[in-house]
């Protein structure tokens, strides 16, 4: 835990200074998690703000400060999930407006500005995002939390409020799908 229980209890009682302190401590970590979950850097701050607004209004429902971090992660996952659902609708609309050539030109212009490292990182992000397209958004978030954020099954159990076996099955299936997509992309590159 990055903060002590007393600070959380003070925030629960409506202490604005305590709430501010919690946000200061967790905002960087939450923004990092959201960056990896939604893979769109320009909207990360917006989603992170939404997470802390939801935290503010749901703090009184937190039974014990012991479960604060899984609670915050749960809010983060839900906000990211809501964002992805909205974004998918907007994206479909936006991409349908552009011709294939326009999309390629936009990508080339964006690539020209970035230096080599950034391009490399961009390629990695795109490769992972493309592979994760093989699973549902819910499974994408679950895989991210497990494989990229490094959360344990116990932690995931608290976030998702389902038993460990159900999580294992879901993770296994999601990973198998991603592996299949990964294998197909590796074969495509080799061929």
């Amino acid at each position: 835990m990055l903060v002590d229980f007393e600070l959380i209890e003070r925030a629960q009682r409506g202490d604005s200074a305590a709430f501010n302190e919690i946000v200061q401590v967790y905002r960087k970590r939450i923004m990092g998690t959201i960056t990896r979950l939604i893979a769109r850097t320009e909207d990360v701050e917006d989603v992170a703000q939404e997470v802390f607004v939801r935290l503010y209004f749901s703090l009184d429902q937190l039974r014990t400060p012991k479960v604060f971090e899984p609670w915050l992660y749960r809010l983060t996952v839900n906000a990211a999930y809501d964002y992805l659902r909205k974004q998918r609708r907007r994206h479909e609309f936006r991409m349908s407006d552009l011709s294939e050539q326009q999309v390629m030109l936009a990508d080339a212009a964006a690539g020209g500005k970035a230096d080599h490292d950034e391009q490399q990182q961009k390629r990695i992000r795109e490769a992972v995002d493309s592979m994760l397209g093989a699973v549902s958004e819910a499974d994408r978030l679950l895989l991210m939390l497990k494989e990229v954020e490094g959360l344990s099954l116990k932690e995931l159990e608290k976030i998702y409020k389902v038993n460990e076996n159900a999580l294992k099955v879901r993770l296994f299936r999601a990973r198998q799908r991603v592996l299949k997509a990964f294998g197909a992309s590796a074969q495509g590159q080799a061929g």
Binding site: M31, G32, R36, E45, K122, R125, V128
Partner: peptide, 16 residues
């Protein structure tokens, strides 16, 4: 697994 680790590094924590 290596790709996921690389992804973690490609998306570092950000200062708001």
């Amino acid at each position: 697994d290596a790709l996921f680790r690389a992804y973690r590094e490609a998306c570092p924590d950000r200062e708001p």
